[in-house]
Write a protein that binds this DNA or RNA. Structure first.
Length: 645
RNA sequence: GCCGAUGUAGCUCAGCUGGCCAGAGCAGCUGAUUUGUAAUCAGCUGGUCGGGGGUUCGAAUCCCUCCAUCGGCUCCA
């Protein structure tokens, strides 16, 4: 007999060789039907794998991430089996589960898979799944594994095997398909009820662009048909929120082939929105002691040689601009910090001056590979809400707190309710790849960790994720439909002060090296606006909305009154317009709803008589009649509520 | 940059097994209508069918090439 410990601490004896399914059955038949895999002493096992010794058990169902992963991993096998049956002779790379489903990298040889083939594969997968195939775990020696895949002629699997340790190799056989695999898998394929192959793409073998490109097929599966439907609804919702689509519909920005790929053109409404964001941050930064600076869009190549960026990125940048006579080379600036370092260097500094905070909405240009461009989130010219804080090592902590305060204020003003903080630290086993003294790193990392605790941030610590020049703190927001976006960042930099030989005179009358902190609460205006659009689905907070109110006269007869209302609103600093087309109210309302204008003010005979408006709020419908003053107060109250600290 | 797909009016799309003058809806313009909480009616305007080259008597349609966009890969100071 062996002792099995349950998550609640209960211990019960079972026969040696018992499986997780057996154990689940002893609890309830229903549970047993839903068990997908099991955690055995912290390792994920097949629910059908015999347990030979005392162990802690955890049963995974669809509600556990590990359970889903088991289903998706099994689905990758299922898909491979289907593909192998349909297109014999294909070879397989790797086929893991991912955050939302799974993929398999396949060398399809002569055959080119296209989207049209996906339906056939899906059908075959469902057929196989219904066959209730089991996944049989086979422990093999390295030689046996090599023999199998040599005979099969799958060089990819052989390459994977060559890196494995003999004695730890397992194969899984399900139906006609045998795969090199660590497992675990679901008890049988009938648990996979719904299949959707989502896309097909090229992917380099082992992520190496010098190696062969395989065909990657992405898919997702579910244990209930209804879950697939829900998933498809979510995909639809994401499509509706796509900032590229909404950006066009709401006339925020556009691109022109003539201007160039990845170079966004901000349309009047988008520019207004962006300006409002900038003004908001400028105001907040002014209060926080930032000093605005302005630097040019190009810089001499020597600037980037000093900063080190030339060596690292020079080859992958836009080609330099040269002067006609002297032949001097200038680069479009890919970042603002080198310029800011030179501003710091423009005069000597005392420790009493620090911290110094230079802020600039600086437009930078980076050559992104053509396949990388994506709406406003990945562009070749963008504006960072950049600032560089020059301070002493002892001031890092306070400065971080100051920046966090700004970031929190922004999140609040834009209704980002959920976010996580990530602190990226250096790899403790590889300290030599980082610049800066051990003592300084220790100091900065400790300071950042303490700040997170003191500010009550839920921070994830990730070792080895720091840049070579310093540790950093990043903020990841969750948008309205649960997607994660990386936004604000705060980074400590020991490198640039060194390279630019920055210094200040300390109380001891000696020269000291300041620390530099890069920070951008929005990141870039382009990316931030994109995320904001997707988060609020184009329904911007009132204070940002390019058009806050639209006046809808019932007929031409009320045009004069509509203009009086407009004047009142303009005088009250409210952005409004009149829809004076000779359309029916229903049509005007429909169009205003589609344009996502927050307040619709309907004016007709009654309103004119009593000097009021009939208010309809976007997405809510009729909310009643208000006086003009009441309306203005309502709008102002809502605007300022979100922007407050 | 790589793999695959796509590119027709301002927008969304049809036509694309080569052959009447390239179509529709919305938007725009003109006129009628004077309207009460998500689409009033009629008429009109608008397109080098992404650019270039080729095959053909004839190309939006077939081929080549370049560009852009989309889904991924690689990259991201």
């Amino acid at each position: 007999m062996i002792n099995i410990t349950f998550p609640d601490g209960n211990v019960r004896p079972f026969e040696a060789g018992v499986t997780a399914i057996d154990i689940a059955k002893s609890l309830s038949e229903g549970l047993a039907r839903n068990v997908l895999s099991a955690g055995i002493d912290g390792e994920v096992w097949d629910a059908t794998r015999p347990i030979q010794k005392d162990a802690k058990i955890q049963l995974y169902t669809w509600n556990d991430p590990a359970g889903k992963a088991t289903v998706w991993h099994s689905s990758a096998h299922l898909m491979a089996e289907a593909i192998e049956q349909l297109y014999p002779g294909v070879k397989f790379g790797i086929g893991p589960d991912i955050e939302n489903g799974f993929y398999y990298d396949i060398d399809t040889g002569e055959k080119t898979l296209t989207e049209a083939d996906l339906t056939d594969i899906e059908k075959r997968m469902i057929e196989i799944a219904r066959g209730k195939q089991t996944f049989n775990r086979i422990e093999v020696s390295k030689a046996e594994a090599e023999k199998y895949f040599t005979e099969k002629g799958d060089e990819y699997k052989l390459e994977l095997i060559s890196e494995l340790t003999d004695g730890q190799i397992t194969l899984y056989k399900s139906g006609t398909f045998t795969d090199l695999c660590r497992g675990p898998h679901v008890p049988d394929t009938s648990m996979i009820k719904a299949v959707k192959l989502t896309s097909i793409a090229g992917a380099y073998w082992r992520g190496d662009e010098k190696r062969k490109q395989l065909t990657r097929v992405y898919g997702i599966t579910f244990t209930k048909a209804k879950e697939l439907e829900e998933y498809l609804v979510l995909l639809e919702e994401a499509k509706k929120r796509d900032h590229r689509k909404l950006g066009k519909e709401l006339e925020l920005f556009t691109f022109s082939q003539k201007v160039g790929a990845g170079l966004p053109l901000w349309l009047p409404k988008g520019a207004q929105l962006r300006e409002r964001l900038e003004q908001f941050l400028k105001k907040v930064q002014k209060e926080a002691g930032y000093l605005p600076v302005i630097t040019p869009h190009i810089g001499n190549v020597n600037l980037y040689k000093t900063s080190g960026h030339f060596d690292k990125y020079g080859k992958d940048s836009f080609r330099p601009i040269t002067t006609p006579i002297e032949g001097e080379a200038f680069f479009l600036k890919p970042m603002n910090c080198p310029h800011h370092c030179e501003i710091f260097n423009a005069k000597p500094h005392s420790y009493k001056d620090l911290p110094i905070r230079y802020a600039e909405f600086g437009t930078v240009y980076r050559y992104e590979q053509s396949g990388e461009l994506h709406g406003l989130t990945r562009v070749r010219g963008f504006t960072q809400d950049d600032a560089h804080i020059f301070c002493t090592p002892d001031q890092i902590k306070t400065e971080f707190k100051g920046v966090i305060k700004i970031i929190m204020r922004i999140f609040k003003a834009l209704d980002f309710k959920e976010f996580v903080t990530q602190i990226s630290l250096r790899d403790p086993n590889n300290k030599e790849k980082y610049i800066g003294s051990d003592e300084n790193w220790e100091k900065a990392e400790t300071a950042i960790k303490e700040v997170a605790v003191e500010e009550g941030l839920e921070a994830i610590l990730v070792e080895g994720e720091a840049a070579f020049y310093g540790p950093k703190m990043d903020f990841m927001v969750k948008d309205a439909i649960g997607r994660k976006w990386q936004l604000g960042t705060i980074q400590v930099d020991y490198n640039l002060p060194e390279r630019f030989d920055l210094s200040y005179i300390g109380a001891d009358n000696d020269r000291h090296r300041p620390v530099m902190i890069h920070r951008a609460p929005f990141g870039s205006m382009e990316r931030f606006v994109a995320v904001l659009v997707e988060h609020c689905a184009g329904n911007f907070p009132l204070w940002l909305s390019p058009e806050q109110a639209i006046i809808l006269p019932i007929s031409e007869k009320y045009q004069n009154y509509a203009e009086k209302v407009l004047q009142f609103l303009n005088n009250s600093d409210i952005r409004a317009l009149i829809d004076d087309r000779s359309e029916k109210a229903g049509k005007k309302i429909r169009d205003a709803e589609l344009k996502k204008i927050p307040f619709m003010l309907i004016v007709g005979e009654r309103e004119e008589a009593e000097g009021s408006i009939s208010l309809r709020r976007h997405g809510q419908g009729d909310v009643g009649t208000f006086s003009l003053q009441q309306l203005a107060d309502m709008i102002h109250e809502e605007e300022s509520r979100m922007q407050q600290a």
